[in-house]
Design a binder for these strands. Structure first.
Lengths: 153, 153
DNA sequence: GAAAACTCCATGCAGATGCATTAATATGAT
DNA sequence: ATCATATTAATGCATCTGCATGGAGTTTTC
């Protein structure tokens, strides 16, 4: 796998981890998204927005907070919110004391959709992740993946 | 994390593994792609095509083989190959004995590009994956991720 | 050996995404 | 106070992607 004896070249183990990370990611995401979509639900990104809001105090967050919580691109989230607001899942309200910002609030419909989606999403996760790992393996995997999220560099 | 006592709901450990899988994936991919692009190179997908061909006997594979090797969608690969052929990185040649198929052959330019890309890609992997994991951790991560790739279900 | 079923690759079209920029507001420095 | 800088969100535009389909060629079936 290694090309030239380059000072900075990753070890085989690291390269392997990387390759499998991309593949498992793409692959499992694809399968789970397919189930969600197959059940007639909106894309997973919407679920992430709804969940992020649901977790927040009062079901409210600024777009920026959602972005950081769910790892969205700003322009992307902006457009999701357009559609979600149009469908009555969230509501944009002014942010007190700073007119650049806004607050996004989840509606009852939004909460309901999040719950209904979970009833498909949860089992899909079980099937595509849970069934393939023992409990301890899942814990170790989560821990290892978390180490990759370090934002330094 | 768990909503209702749903028979099929994933355990917290599994949910956690899933969440981190998506995030670490998106996140690390984004950073590495940014470096590749920042160095003026084409998208990572092209690299995957080139590498797949390079690994093959004679530097040749059918599109279908590339698809399966690199987990591409058929229509997507078809279009990548258009552009890559236009840039002289690969060449499409007839498949002897079956006129539906074709062979894609990597050119010298293609090989050269793959090498140049690796000189940026490799260090990026080191920086964003290698630096965050000990060698043994990388091995364990790769092994765990591989278990997710089981294609049953 | 003809018709049906299948495999392989390409492509038109709608919708999603990325990038760069804009508009509006807020903050900080002098 | 004023002006330069920074932050937040939206959007025009080009590109990319997904889906459905098409056309050409091959294998299977009877």
């Amino acid at each position: 796998m290694q090309e030239q004896p380059d000072m900075q070249a990753p070890s085989d183990a690291v390269t392997d981890a990387w390759v499998h990370l991309i593949r498992a990611g793409r692959d499992v995401v694809r399968r789970i998204e397919a189930e969600i979509k197959g059940a007639g639900f909106p894309p997973l990104a919407w679920y992430d927005v709804l969940l992020s809001l649901k977790k927040a105090q009062d079901g409210r967050r600024t777009p920026r907070e959602i972005e950081r919580d769910a790892l969205f691109e700003q322009y992307n989230l902006s457009r999701f919110l357009d559609r979600m607001e149009a469908e009555g899942l969230v509501r944009r309200i002014p942010y007190p004391g700073d007119r650049r910002r806004q607050l996004v609030e989840i509606t009852e419909e939004g909460r309901a959709l999040q719950r209904r989606m979970w009833s498909v999403y949860g089992p899909a996760i079980s099937r595509h992740v849970g069934c393939k790992l023992a409990e301890g393996e899942a814990e170790r995997l989560a821990a290892l993946l978390q180490k990759l999220a370090d934002t330094r560099t």
